[in-house]
Deep mutational scan, measured.
Amino acid sequence: MDVFMKGLSKAKEGVVAAAEKTKQGVAEAAGKTKEGVLYVGSKTKEGVVHGVATVAEKTKEQVTNVGGAVVTGVTAVAQKTVEGAGSIAAATGFVKKDQLGKNEEGAPQEGILEDMPVDPDNEAYEMPSEEGYQDYEPEA
C-alpha cells in the first residue's frame, strides 16, 4: 500500500510541476504579447503594419512553449490582441483601416495563427491545408 501511495504522490508532483510550467509559459506569452502591443503603439504610420505582424510573430513563438489545451486559448487571445492593436492603430490615425491585415508588401496577414497546427491532446499534428499553395516548377 505504501508503494501505491508513494507512486500516487510522485504522479501528483509531476502534474503540479507540469501545471506550473504551463502557467509560466502562458505568463511569458502574455508578456511578449504586451511587449508587441507597446511596440505597435510606438510606431509611426509606416511601421504600424509591420508592428502588428511582430506582435503576432512574438506571440506565436511563445505559444510553442505552452502545451496542451492552453495553446488553443493563448492563440485565440493573441489573435484578438493583434486585431485590437490594429483597431487602436486605425482609431489613433497611425494607419488607414484599409491597410490593416496586410503586410508591407500588401499581402493579407489573416491566418497567421489560424494555420498553425495545434492539437490540445498532444496526440497528432496535421499540416495546414494546401489550398493556398501553388506547385513550383523550376525553369529549365
Results as ranks from 00 to 15, higher is better:
1 M>I: 00
4 F>Y: 09
6 K>I: 14
10 K>F: 08
10 K>V: 14
12 K>C: 11
14 G>T: 15
19 A>W: 14
22 T>L: 06
24 Q>S: 08
24 Q>A: 08
25 G>V: 13
26 V>Q: 00
26 V>A: 02
28 E>T: 06
30 A>K: 02
32 K>R: 09
33 T>N: 00
34 K>A: 10
34 K>C: 06
34 K>G: 02
37 V>W: 15
39 Y>G: 02
40 V>Y: 15
40 V>W: 03
40 V>K: 01
40 V>N: 00
41 G>Q: 07
43 K>N: 02
44 T>Q: 01
45 K>T: 10
45 K>M: 15
46 E>S: 09
47 G>A: 15
49 V>D: 01
49 V>W: 15
54 T>L: 14
57 E>I: 11
60 K>Q: 04
61 E>S: 06
62 Q>M: 05
62 Q>S: 09
62 Q>D: 01
65 N>D: 04
66 V>W: 14
66 V>N: 02
67 G>N: 05
67 G>L: 12
68 G>T: 12
70 V>T: 02
70 V>D: 01
73 G>R: 06
73 G>W: 11
74 V>A: 08
74 V>K: 01
74 V>D: 11
75 T>H: 14
76 A>P: 01
78 A>K: 04
79 Q>V: 06
82 V>A: 10
82 V>W: 12
83 E>C: 03
86 G>I: 14
87 S>M: 13
87 S>T: 08
88 I>S: 02
88 I>K: 03
88 I>C: 04
88 I>R: 03
89 A>C: 08
92 T>I: 04
93 G>W: 13
93 G>R: 03
94 F>H: 04
96 K>T: 14
97 K>Q: 15
97 K>L: 09
97 K>G: 09
97 K>T: 11
99 Q>V: 14
99 Q>H: 14
101 G>W: 07
101 G>Y: 13
102 K>F: 01
104 E>C: 02
108 P>Y: 11
108 P>N: 13
110 E>C: 07
112 I>Y: 05
114 E>K: 12
116 M>L: 13
118 V>Q: 02
121 D>E: 11
124 A>V: 14
124 A>L: 04
125 Y>F: 09
125 Y>M: 03
127 M>V: 09
128 P>H: 04
130 E>N: 11
131 E>A: 13
132 G>M: 10
133 Y>I: 02
133 Y>N: 12
134 Q>G: 11
134 Q>R: 12
135 D>M: 08
136 Y>M: 07
137 E>L: 06
138 P>Q: 05
138 P>D: 07
139 E>S: 11
